[in-house]
């Protein structure tokens, strides 16, 4: 028997789903046989590359064989290591400054819709313009030290973090706000207990993308000017046609990138897995 009053169902409380996919879902090997297959494929790919390059007698300055790259990495590592440090300092300093400013700005601005509408175009300009383009200008003003690089990295990271964090802070679920209000939550409690946790998955997405953009900008800035950093090593080695060493540096850069990815993946799994 249907005793429901004829009426349209009230629209469900709109819980905006976001794709924190890169953060919370990843492919992972589950069994030993899967691991074995992955390792076997890697050996075939690298070994095959080694064989083809040797067999076709490809010159080192076009594409050095993997074994040469590995040897160069081991031999040159003591020389490259300080530069790795310089790059990480640039990246870390620029990322921290940019991320903090980006998050604070997003948290504040989303409270004032008009302010947000006014500044969003500028943030978009900053997000879409490669900050690398500013490096020559920054070098003119600040010299060849860390300063122009850190500024460039912060400029690349900040807007990216801000735009994602703002999306997170805008996802206000009115039912959850009402819940907190019904218990008399203060504005500060509302922020830390409702808005911030709700925005966290998007903030993490912003930090992850921002850090990758930051690495790109850091290396780019090092290539443009100054005598240190992994980017500087790249230009130096390629100008000397030391291609195995050149590729060894690229290998290190990939390694940093993967490390960043894994870090945020783990943070996301721990703190944002409620999303899925």
């Amino acid at each position: 028997m249907s005793d429901a009053i004829p009426e349209f169902r009230k629209a469900e409380a709109t819980e905006v789903g976001i794709t924190g996919s890169a953060l919370t879902s990843g492919v992972g090997a589950r069994t030993w046989s899967e691991v074995a297959i992955i390792v076997a494929v890697a050996i075939v790919v690298i070994g095959g590359l080694e064989f083809v390059l040797w067999w076709r007698e490809v010159p080192d300055y076009i594409f050095p064989r993997p074994s040469l790259i590995a040897a160069a990495l081991v031999k040159e590592f003591p020389l490259i290591l300080p530069h790795l440090g310089y790059t990480l300092v640039t990246l870390f300093a620029g990322f921290t400054i940019g991320a903090v400013i980006g998050m604070v700005l997003a948290a504040v601005v989303t409270q004032y819709p008009l302010v947000e509408k006014v500044i969003t175009p500028y943030i978009l300009v900053l997000v879409t313009t490669p900050m690398l383009a500013l490096v020559p200008l920054l070098i003119l003003r600040f010299g060849f030290g860390y300063t122009p690089r850190i500024i460039a990295v912060a400029l690349a990271v900040g807007p990216m973090v801000m735009i994602n964090a703002a999306t997170g802070f805008r996802r206000t679920d009115s039912a959850k706000i009402a819940l907190a209000r019904s218990y008399g939550a203060t504005t500060l409690q509302m922020f830390w207990k409702i808005r911030a946790p709700m925005a966290l998955p998007m903030i993490l997405v912003g930090l992850m993308i921002g850090s990758i953009f930051g690495l790109l900008t850091a290396v780019g800035a090092e290539m443009v000017g100054g005598g240190f950093g992994l980017g500087n090593r790249l230009t130096t080695y390629s100008s000397m046609i030391n291609m195995p060493e050149f590729f060894a540096v690229i290998l290190l850069l990939s390694f940093i990138g993967i490390l960043i990815y894994i870090t945020f993946f783990l943070i996301g799994k721990k703190w944002a897995s409620w999303q899925t």
Binding site: K10, A13, A175, K176, L179, A180, K193
Partner: peptide
């Protein structure tokens, strides 16, 4: 006055006990 909402309106980032203790935390 207590309020029970349409849907359960639990905070998805807190476990059940965390949700039940939420009002006490706020107050």
């Amino acid at each position: 006055i207590g309020l029970v909402f349409q849907e359960a309106n639990l905070l998805p980032w807190r476990n059940l006990m965390g949700n039940i203790l939420f009002p006490f935390e706020v107050k």
